[in-house]
Design a protein around this nucleic acid. Sequence first.
DNA 1: GTCTATAACCGGATAGAC
DNA 2: GTCTATCCGGTTATAGAC
Lengths: 228, 228
Amino acid sequence: MTDIHPRVSSRGEQTRERILDTALELFRERGYEATTMRVIAAAAGVAVGNSYYYFPSKEHLVQAFYSRIQKTQIEAATPLLWKEKSLRARLRLHLHERVHGLTPYHAVSGTLFRSAADPQSPLSPFSAESGPTRRASVAFMREVIDGSSARIPHDVAPSLPHILWLYEVGVVAFWVHDQSPQQQRTHELIDDSTDAIVRLLSLANLPGLRAIRKKMLRWVADLVKDDL
Amino acid sequence: MTDIHPRVSSRGEQTRERILDTALELFRERGYEATTMRVIAAAAGVAVGNSYYYFPSKEHLVQAFYSRIQKTQIEAATPLLWKEKSLRARLRLHLHERVHGLTPYHAVSGTLFRSAADPQSPLSPFSAESGPTRRASVAFMREVIDGSSARIPHDVAPSLPHILWLYEVGVVAFWVHDQSPQQQRTHELIDDSTDAIVRLLSLANLPGLRAIRKKMLRWVADLVKDDL
DNA sequence: GTCTATAACCGGATAGAC
DNA sequence: GTCTATCCGGTTATAGAC
């Protein structure tokens, strides 16, 4: 972070990466519980204490996994988005990429995301510690929207990135529970629900929906209040 | 379970209850992590091994908590439901009761529900082990619906209890994350969303909504496929 | 600052005696 | 059914090497 030297990666950074790579590989192969810190250290060729020097806890490895996969996915989706103009297509592309990047971890995802469900946990997507990752995700969602040809109702516009990020969290939660082959149900869900969302947005200006819209905006604000 | 004798509670059952009571009290007072199995055993006046005789794991205490609170809540809500005829009112009553019963545990709920988010965990509301609790909840939801004056579209009717149970799970998840005083946001959410649901149901027969309805029914079936 | 090695602590879980 | 002793894994502590 504070490395002002132009080195691509210091020795420490290499070690850190090696530990993380090893851990994620073992998580995939044997699952989270079966992968003990002692095993990770041994496989990475370091002492246990050294793992703890870079990752204060086993959960910090999971947090590192989150931000790595998020970064990778944004980098993968960005160039592809240039070709798409409609909000529906852009949303779909983004979300299909999202779950695609997670796919190798599907079997362990339940365990990996376990503590994400605890609001008190730093791993919660709503926690202060997840702030950077969350804001990056929301910012990317904003790009997905702004780069599209869609016209968004004025009152919805400011929080739409947050709303759609919440929706993204929901899609990932569905994917975690999806036991269909290749998680195809999730991909169908993405196609169908992006469709529904775009339709809803075009209906959003109907006078009868003003009230419910206002309420929905408040619910979202409750969940992401710190960075709205 | 298999006790054929008419005794109200055998000695073993008393011990079991004592351990559970003690555990839940300590969870509320000190939180889940801080309450070690050793402390529970000591406070309940038994040996650690004995706790494990009744509850194979710490998580089994949480599971017992689930089914106890569910049973209590159904018993509390049932007599009150007689007074209400509209689906909206009945749903509201049920859900307000639901979160009301959970309220003493709000501070620990995040940790208590942690593993509920893992589909592989027996504590997941979708797991085989949660089957009995889940089916009881769905059955109660069926009563909430059937006892109402609402007319339900034919294709939706069979799975509506499951759909509304899923919605209930969602409300509880929101409640867990709700940091507003007295979780009043959740109570507002209940009022607003029951309203939205009843309206949606009355709109459900519109021809344009057939297709999306079919898809929604399939999504629900995916999540609760074993007992639909 | 990066790293090793080893022992120890703590809490969930198990084994086996009574 | 109930106990004590033990194991196992996350985590910490220590003491020192590059």
